[in-house]
Design a protein around this nucleic acid. Structure first.
Length: 499
RNA sequence: GGCCUCAUCGUCUAUCGGUUAGGACGCCACCCUUUCAAGGUGGAGAGACGGGUUCGAUUCCCGUUGAGGCUACCA
């Protein structure tokens, strides 16, 4: 919401908090995952609802796995969904100096210490612990090194990692979705905050950046719950205010396991290319792990914004149901203003080779009318394009089932088709009202039901048994093409009965 | 293994101590109807288990079970 009147109205209903600053912080190591997109959505809704700021931070500190392509996919995905953000995008990798400064401060205050234990040695201890089935916790062997020994090893050029000195006690917080969560500090080991190559580890980088960005509310997946006590400890040691936390539930696949590639499309881009509407994705994702509290289901972004509140956040993981997604897209397809869906329709026609953008624009009014006719019976924009094929291609292929069902008696069908063609050819005007009058009269004269005429005609015109109303089909196909198709059908039927 | 989190129809959810436990997707039937959709009506379908607290528990507490997450000098 960029509209100031609207945001002022939203503010009036906001909780008694200062405008929140939230962030979406994906790591660019794959495509924008639906889970990530939902986290972004909730953050966005929260920021926009309460007049706050939504920031974007790319956590690219893992040089091995981070790619520019992936960063672009995140930007593209957010843009497609219509989730914008404020201020400059922050790239975590460029904050290295600050991260190191923060570690130095922690070292200076005694909140952290140097650990000279070689990685291989740590590995060995971990394996030993695993073998004896006892939990491994760093034994603090280097937590209290005498100053002179430390100086000596430093001078000798020994490498070291920096570990946070976890204090005694219990670390707890009030989570916006889980209420109170507490971790006894004895269960938290002295975790590494700076690697021996002087690069920061995740928890330190996140806290350092969230402090620098002035983040007041951290909303993220609940797989981060166990990172939270470590981060809270870091905030305190750094002398910074601890933000609020909201841990939203995970999204699972149909088998109850964490959503992954096995479950099919998990990248937002996949759905975009399958002809899903962005408003559907938003609507569907919002309802996974959040509820407006009433029975409203099909919603556009502005309605979502109106209804959103932290209270509706769920604790339980939600299963991603592709069937409901499909249904919802069908709802959006028929409910949204035609202008809103048209931009998504043109690319589908091109992608599926049904038509070209130039051709479509050349007779845009006709095209929009056709889309309007088809959208109510489609579930994706690709469906629309596929169903529109008979109105674009020169040739027509008769579906085998359609032929055997509706043209069972070839001679009779040909007779009816010829009579039908004659009446339509004589029509003074090509409009649905005249068509209907003419054909209903014909049916009465022949003493048959309308369906006996409409059904064979539908096959002749589209090759299929399913289509929009038959008069609309005639209208959109046009007089010439309709009459041609009927002629071809008669030819086909006569040939067929001759064999 | 340890720590943390979670638990209402197959799935998404409503319920904030008292309801014939409501809605939606999916499934089935019927209606509408020139077909297919859409729409309408109806149906089958749930409080994991065991203890408490209470006049009364899906709801509050404890335990069990199950599920998920974390457990790196990854993020």
């Amino acid at each position: 919401m960029t509209n100031s009147v609207a945001s002022a109205a939203a503010l009036a209903s906001s909780p008694d908090i200062a405008p929140p600053r939230v962030r979406f912080a994906p790591s660019p190591t794959g495509f924008l995952h639906v889970g990530g997109a939902r986290t972004a959505l909730f953050n966005w809704l929260y920021a926009r609802k309460y007049g706050g700021k939504m920031l974007l931070r790319i956590e690219d500190t893992d040089r091995q796995r981070s790619t520019d392509e992936s960063t672009r996919a995140i930007f593209d995905g957010l843009a497609w969904l219509g989730l914008d953000y404020d201020e400059e995008v922050v790239f975590q990798g460029s904050n290295l100096a600050r991260h190191q400064t923060d570690v130095a401060a922690l070292l200076a205050s005694g909140a952290a210490y140097r650990d000279f234990t070689p990685a291989a040695e740590l590995e060995r201890m971990r394996e030993e612990a695993a073998a004896s089935k006892s939990p491994f916790r760093f034994d603090r062997r280097t937590a209290e090194l005498p100053a002179e020994e430390e100086a000596r090893r430093l001078a000798a050029g020994e490498t070291f990692a920096v570990r946070f000195r976890v204090p005694d006690g219990v670390t707890e917080w009030h989570d916006a979705v889980h209420e109170r969560i507490a971790f006894p500090n004895k269960d938290i080991e002295d975790f590494v905050i700076l690697r021996s190559d002087r690069t920061p580890v995740y928890n330190l980088a996140v806290v350092s950046d969230d402090i620098a960005m002035g983040i007041t509310m951290v909303m993220r997946g609940d797989d981060h719950i166990s990172n939270t006590p470590k981060q809270i400890l870091l905030y305190r040691a750094l002398g910074a205010p601890v933000p609020e936390f909201a841990h939203v539930p995970m999204i699972h696949g149909t088998d109850g396991k964490k959503l992954s590639k096995r479950h099919g499309a998990t990248a937002v881009g996949d759905y975009q290319h399958q002809g899903l509407l962005p408003s559907t994705m938003i609507n569907f994702l919002a309802l996974l792990g959040w509820s407006p509290g009433d029975d409203t289901e099909v919603m556009t972004l502005d309605v979502l914004l109106d209804k959103f509140s932290l209270d509706g956040l769920q604790k339980k993981a939600a299963v991603f149901d592709p069937q409901k997604l499909d249904w919802m897209n069908g709802q959006h397809l028929s409910m949204l203003p035609l202008e809103t869906i048209m931009p998504h329709v043109y690319p589908a026609f091109e992608r599926l080779g049904v038509s070209t953008r130039e051709e479509l624009h050349a007779r845009d009014e006709w095209f929009r009318g056709l889309v309007d006719l088809l959208r109510v019976r489609a579930r994706t924009v690709d469906d629309i394009a596929l169903q529109a094929t008979p109105y674009f291609s020169e040739d027509i292929t008769y579906d085998a089932d359609a032929v055997s069902k509706q043209w069972r008696d070839a001679d009779a069908s040909a007779q009816i088709l010829m009579a039908t063609r004659e009446r339509l050819a004589d029509l003074p005007a090509w409009d649905t009202a005249s068509m209907e009058t003419a054909l209903r009269n014909l049916a009465e004269e022949l003493g048959i039901s309308g369906g006996k005429i409409f059904q064979p005609l539908r096959v002749a015109l589209t090759g299929l048994t399913a289509s929009p109303g038959i008069f609309d089909v005639l209208l959109y196909l046009g007089r010439e093409r309709s009459l041609d198709r009927m002629q071809s059908a008669v030819r086909f039927l006569k040939q067929d009965s001759a064999v």
